[in-house]
C-alpha cells in the first residue's frame, strides 16, 4: 500500500487558496466595470472583497498544521529559494493574503469600521491610527492584488506540476487547469453568496455577470483538461501509465462522473441554459435562483474534487511503480 504524504489538509488548502484568488479576481474585475459612469456591480465587488481573505487565511492555517513542526513555519520566511515552488508560493501567499485583507478593509462600511475600532482599547494609539478610510483607493489596491491573485491561482498548480518525479502532475497544463478552476470557484462562491443573501433582492444584472464569467472560466478549464488528457495519451509511457489512474484506474469514476460530469459539464449546461435566451434571442436575462444555487454548488464541489483527484492520484504515479499498480 502506497503511503500518501499529502492528505486532505493539503487538498482543502489548495482549494481554499484558489477560492480566495478567484474571489479576489472576480470581485476586483467587478469593481472596475462601469455603466454610464456608475459602478456596474457594486454589490459583487463589495461581497467578493469582504469574502476573499478568509478562505486563504484558513487554508494557510491548515497548511501550517500539516507541517511536521507547525511552529517552524517561520523558517519559510527566513529562507528564499527561487528553485522551490513552495518557497516562492509562501511569499506569494503571504503578500496576497495581506493585500486581500487591506482590500476587504477598504470595502468595510463606515459604521462597521467604527464598530471594529471601538473594540480596540483607547490606549492602543498605534492601532487606532490604522482607522482610515481607504475607499478612494479600492481600484489601486485591486490592481496591486490582481497579479498576486493570479499568482496564487497558478502557484497551487505549479506546486504539483514542478515535481518531475510524478508523471501525473509533471506538465505545465496543471498550473493553468488549477488557475481557471480557482477563478471559476471564486465566481461560483460569489454567485452562491449573491443568491443566499436574502436581505437584498438579487439583481439580474449581477446574476448575469457572474454566470457569464463562470461560463468563460469553466470553458477555459475544459480547454485545458482536454489537452491534458490527449497530450498525456500521446506522451511517454510513464505519463500514459499515470493517466491510467483516471482512465480505468481507481480515480476514474470520481474524475469522469463526479468532477467532469457533475462538477464541470452539468453547471456549464445550467449556466448556458440560463444565458441562451438573452444571448440568442435577445430576451432580457431571467436567472433562476435555484438553478444558480445548484450550478454554483456543483462548481465548488468540482473545484474541490479536482484538487482531491490531483493530490491523491499524483502521489500514486511514479516512474518505477506504475507497472506494479496495474
Amino acid at each position: 500500500m502506497h503511503e500518501f504524504n499529502w492528505g486532505l489538509l493539503i487538498v482543502v488548502y489548495l482549494f481554499l487558496g484558489g477560492l480566495s484568488a478567484g474571489l479576489f479576481f472576480a470581485a476586483g474585475l467587478a469593481n472596475y466595470l462601469e455603466v454610464d459612469g456608475q459602478p456596474a456591480h457594486p454589490r459583487i465587488a463589495r461581497m467578493g472583497a469582504l469574502l476573499a481573505p478568509w478562505p486563504v487565511a484558513i487554508g494557510s492555517g491548515l497548511l501550517i498544521l500539516d507541517l511536521g513542526h507547525w511552529y517552524r513555519f517561520y523558517k519559510l520566511f527566513t529562507h528564499f529559494r527561487w528553485e522551490s515552488p513552495m518557497s516562492i508560493g509562501s511569499y506569494l501567499l503571504t503578500i496576497f493574503t495581506l493585500i486581500a485583507f487591506v482590500y476587504a478593509f477598504a470595502w468595510l462600511p463606515e459604521d462597521w469600521r467604527q464598530r471594529l475600532f471601538a473594540k480596540v482599547p483607547a490606549t492602543w494609539k498605534q492601532v487606532h491610527r490604522l482607522n482610515v478610510d481607504l475607499s478612494a483607493h479600492r481600484k489601486t489596491i485591486a490592481m496591486a492584488g490582481f497579479p498576486f491573485s493570479i499568482g496564487v491561482g497558478i502557484y497551487t498548480g505549479v506546486l504539483l506540476g514542478a515535481v518531475s518525479a510524478r508523471p501525473f502532475w509533471n506538465t505545465n497544463l496543471v498550473a493553468q487547469m488549477f488557475l481557471f478552476s480557482a477563478l471559476s470557484s471564486g465566481t461560483a462562491a460569489l454567485l452562491l453568496a449573491l443568491v443566499l443573501d436574502k436581505r437584498n433582492p438579487v439583481e439580474q444584472r449581477d446574476l448575469k455577470f457572474l454566470v457569464w464569467l463562470d461560463v468563460i472560466f469553466i470553458s477555459l478549464e475544459l480547454f485545458i483538461i482536454l489537452p491534458y488528457l490527449i497530450h498525456g495519451q500521446l506522451s511517454v509511457l510513464a505519463v500514459k501509465q499515470a493517466l491510467w489512474l483516471i482512465l480505468g484506474g481507481p480515480y476514474t469514476f470520481v474524475f469522469w462522473v463526479c468532477f467532469l460530469g457533475f462538477g464541470l459539464l452539468v453547471p456549464l449546461g445550467i449556466e448556458v441554459y440560463e444565458l441562451a435566451p438573452s444571448l440568442l434571442k435577445g430576451r432580457p436575462f431571467h436567472g433562476s435562483r435555484n438553478l444558480a444555487l445548484t450550478a454554483a454548488g456543483l462548481v465548488l464541489f468540482g473545484g474541490f474534487l479536482l484538487r482531491y483527484i490531483f493530490v491523491y492520484a499524483g502521489q500514486l504515479s511514479s516512474f518505477h511503480k506504475m507497472g506494479m499498480l496495474r
Binding site: 513542526h69 529562507h79 502521489q315 511514479s318
Partner: peptide
C-alpha cells in the same frame, strides 16, 4: 534544524 516537515522532498524523490 531547518526541516519544517512539509514532506515536499518525499514527494519529489523519484525513488521514494
Amino acid at each position: 534544524d531547518d526541516c519544517i516537515g512539509c514532506r515536499y522532498c518525499m514527494i519529489a524523490c523519484p525513488y521514494d
